[in-house]
Design a binder for these strands. Sequence first.
DNA 1: TTGTACGCGTTATCAT
DNA 2: ATGATAACGCGTACAA
Lengths: 347, 347
Amino acid sequence: MEAFNMVTRKEVADLAGVSEATVSRVFNGLGPMKPATKERVLQAAKQLDYHPNAIAQSFARRRSGNLGVVLPYMPKVHLFSTYYFSEILSGIGEQVREQGYDMLLTLLTPDESQDYSRLYRSQKVDACVILGSRDTPEQRSSLQQLQEQRLPFCLVNQHFEGMTLSEVDADHVQGSCMAVRHLQEAGCRKIAFLNGSPQYSNSRDRLVGYTDAMRDAGLDMPSQLLLEGNYSRKSGYEAAAKLWERRDEVEAVFAANDRMAIGLMQGLRERGWTAGRDFAVVGCDDSDAAKLSDPPLSSVSVPFYEMGKEAARRVLAQVLGESSGEPFHIKLPTRLVVRESSIRKEN
Amino acid sequence: MEAFNMVTRKEVADLAGVSEATVSRVFNGLGPMKPATKERVLQAAKQLDYHPNAIAQSFARRRSGNLGVVLPYMPKVHLFSTYYFSEILSGIGEQVREQGYDMLLTLLTPDESQDYSRLYRSQKVDACVILGSRDTPEQRSSLQQLQEQRLPFCLVNQHFEGMTLSEVDADHVQGSCMAVRHLQEAGCRKIAFLNGSPQYSNSRDRLVGYTDAMRDAGLDMPSQLLLEGNYSRKSGYEAAAKLWERRDEVEAVFAANDRMAIGLMQGLRERGWTAGRDFAVVGCDDSDAAKLSDPPLSSVSVPFYEMGKEAARRVLAQVLGESSGEPFHIKLPTRLVVRESSIRKEN
DNA sequence: TTGTACGCGTTATCAT
DNA sequence: ATGATAACGCGTACAA
């Protein structure tokens, strides 16, 4: 079973005619050493096909070399099945590899959602990046705990008002504002907003962006034009029914993500309204689906990949003592990608 | 920095008035023991908030408790941005949690793509699930090496002819056959096939399925109707141009994945041909995109989630000695999901 | 049923 | 510039 090499430092030391400590120093690049000695050790190691045992290293260093990635519990929905998580994960993956770290994935179950510190206690990770957390009292207190225990962690794409946690976020206010301005420039004045749950700071930010843009343009925001979905295609589809009832009051829709935007387009098309012709739509995320939809969906592009990468970089810097350890708060810019869904062709 | 508890077994033993070994036995549920003793130990542990150090456990057990998940190198494409990987990962995640294992993600770089054993040598994983591998000579030899070293691993969704490796695959032959039969039943006789690279066994299997169904129905398979893309939307879009040139010879298209199918539909629509009206299309994967596309795409549903879960289950059984250790070869069934793209409405 | 004692493969400190 | 050696926290064989 364990039919492996298991060459230890001792064997290398013996073959090279040095002490074990010297072998370690060679492999860790520490202290001054005679080039000849180093060479002998490397030769011996190569000959024996020696590779340091990562577990033993972690044990001795009291550091795992793993960055924990915490994913939220999501009932029914298969977890990674969204562009959002995929991109962030890729970014984290790229960064950890550059730093010689590994990624340990953790899928939270509903009950343990509140107990992050389990991960740290078991020493399997040195730090964590937490994705998809929501703003609830339980979450706040768990995160508060982590904070008090001085455990290094970083939130991605979620902001907690009134707490000073390390976060890497995107400028959703700006993005939404751009999106709505774009719709205005396309000649729309009656612009509805299909948002997601306010438990996500993203949603709240987008509402601010929408409101800013509408107010600045002196446009009305009647409450019937403010809808709330749950970021699923289905909820967008359902929103279409509501908007259809008030079709005289709607020229355009800004949706808080692409899936809802696409569901919305599907629902309205069934009623004979086509995006890019009868009304304009802009979504958020600029996911793959935006390119795949018909018509292609204009969308606010969010740099998820970069956000993941930056979060990993910063939090690992804390672990490795290369940073002050003060909570940081990064906000990356978004940009608007215009496609056909928001260009109203005259008919 | 390391402002943590760090309560050790010794402290618990002292408080409970027992030996360290007894504490271990309690926590590992080993050997016969007086209930009272057990109780005392648990009390003490609770009082001190003791938690075993996972790294030390791994070190002593000479087992990491991690299942490695190897993801292929994919230039440019952000890695997880496909339905395929996301679903498999979710399945693996579910299984490892049930077994108390953790998932260690590894993104291969181009150069190390051939050296899987690095992972095992460092002892950071006890077994691996390998995703997205291709059938190339280099891959074959790396996998052969792993095999010879008797390192437990399992491939998902890829079969290597002539080697007896552990694999969890889907029945792509059957799925493709069903898809093509469905098109035939819808009245189509001129059915094109847009496949992906034959480096993936999936592609080869699908070709077999297509061929079987066409032959059984006594239909022609002129080589002009056999196209090859690279599983991207763009390649499907490009294939549309080729098919358009021979539009008199085509009534339907079977595509080896959804993205190509959608690209194809986009390309043909630009030329005035709409799927579900002017021609029929079936894709593969039944990804989210299939529901999002217009018209919704008929597709061969592949149980990626279950495949990931099964692969993890089997490979961990090997590690834990609950299985013979013989290479296994699982093949899960696929099913056809019919949507509007393959229902030709008369116009 | 419980305790003793050793080993695991490093890192890191202190000598030399 | 290099060697000796004490941790590190736990599993486990063996003794009692």
